[in-house]
């Protein structure tokens, strides 16, 4: 199936102003001013430029499902049906990590689950890259292959539609009723494949000097030698973990004022000194370099063993956000492959 971009945006507009009902909020990447095609996630508005393709947004999709501050007891879900569109493959993959952690077999975060159920997730193929993008190093692709409800691949002034779930099938039917959805042909599918290959090659090309082995157990080594060097400019601000699409460490605050217990969860960061501190003041990771290293171990070893999936999807946001200009890719390459290279850009 295929939809003209203009028809899709009109459909979003009708959803956002309430004239088609069913979905009361549409969140899309909105172009920021003067920053090389960077986008922020925000409600759809016809006054603003919505970029569904392009590259990943500044904020991770996680912030729409797992908010920086959210009441988890008592659960007060809005039951607001949402559309989140323009999600890139790295974020779709990250949502799968969060699903395992927050809505898995033995633990379900009720608020996360409610947002997940009430939202249609529409992914789009990347059509450009950010300098820090490196999904291909992690075995990923700049297009989603699973984990979405609906996927859109741009072709000229249209999007080729692919469904990825029952929810997506139902959504497509709804879309057909409310917008002009046409049939696509084999040539379109072929053209999408060509575009995808081109984008994957582009991501690989910009990372050609940063390719590395996947010998991640090497990250455990040299606690006192390599890691203090790699983390030299780290100030422990926690930007990397807060902006990471798979980091979900939480802090649970009690905000009870009356009889009813009230619990509010917020983001925590393993980069902060107080994170693992126990009563009496001891901490298992008192040095910055130890906390810095912990993030790498978590992404490449702990999440792999707990969730059977790497905790890094190659979005590159941690590198972009780093106050110390530390390039995540270079740290991993330096330590995993033992290559002498500067990690600060």
């Amino acid at each position: 199936m295929l939809i003209k971009e203009q028809a899709l945006l009109s459909f979003f507009e009708k959803c956002a102003d309430g004239s088609v009902g069913a979905y009361s909020e549409v969140i899309v990447p909105i172009l920021t001013e003067g920053q090389d095609g960077q986008t922020r996630l925000a409600p759809f508005s016809k006054e603003k430029t919505c970029i569904l393709d392009g590259f990943r947004s500044v904020d991770p999709t996680k912030i729409l499902y797992y908010m920086p501050r959210e009441k988890v007891l008592p659960v007060e879900t809005s039951n607001k049906k949402r559309i989140v569109a323009g999600v890139k493959a790295c974020d779709v993959k990250a949502m799968q990590v969060l699903d395992t952690a927050l809505a898995g077999e033995d633990f379900v975060d009720p608020v996360y689950q409610a947002w997940r159920e009430d939202t249609v997730l529409i992914s789009t193929d990347c059509s450009s890259t950010a300098p820090t993008c490196h999904c291909t190093i992690l075995g990923g692709t700049p297009y989603a292959e699973s984990g979405f409800d609906l996927n859109l691949s741009k072709l000229g002034d249209s999007y080729i539609i692919q469904t990825g779930s029952e929810k997506g099938e139902a959504f497509l039917k709804f879309l057909e009723k409310n917008a002009d959805v046409q049939k696509s042909n084999d040539a379109d599918v072929k053209a999408v494949q060509d575009n995808r290959k081109k984008m994957a090659d582009q991501v690989a090309a910009q990372n050609k000097d940063l390719e590395r082995s996947d010998n991640y157990p090497n990250l455990r080594k040299d606690m006192d030698k390599e890691w203090p060097v790699a983390s030299e400019t780290c100030v422990g601000c926690g930007a990397c973990t807060n902006i990471c699409p798979t980091c979900y460490c939480l802090i649970l605050n009690d905000e009870t004022k009356a009889q009813q217990f009230v619990k509010v969860r917020g983001y925590d960061s393993c980069q902060w000194h107080g994170y693992a501190r126990v009563a009496g003041g001891d901490s298992p990771r008192p040095k910055m370099s130890q906390r810095f290293r912990n993030r790498y171990l978590c992404k490449f070893l702990f999440m792999q063993s707990n969730f059977n999936q790497l905790g890094c999807t190659g979005c590159g946001r941690c590198t972009e956000a780093c106050a110390g200009n530390i390039d995540f890719r270079k740290v991993v390459k330096r330590i995993v492959d033992g290559v002498e290279m500067a990690v600060v850009d």
């Binding site: 952690a101 927050l102 033995d106 633990f107 975060d109 979900y248 460490c249 939480l250 802090i251 649970l252 925590d268 393993c270 994170y275 693992a276 501190r277 126990v278 298992p284 171990l297 978590c298 070893l301 702990f302 063993s305 707990n306």
Partner: peptide, 16 residues
């Protein structure tokens, strides 16, 4: 520092 109790918040991790 066992914070959430469910193996979620990660404050109490000891390696894996």
């Amino acid at each position: 520092k066992m914070y959430c109790g469910h193996g979620q918040c990660r404050h109490c991790v000891m390696g894996e």
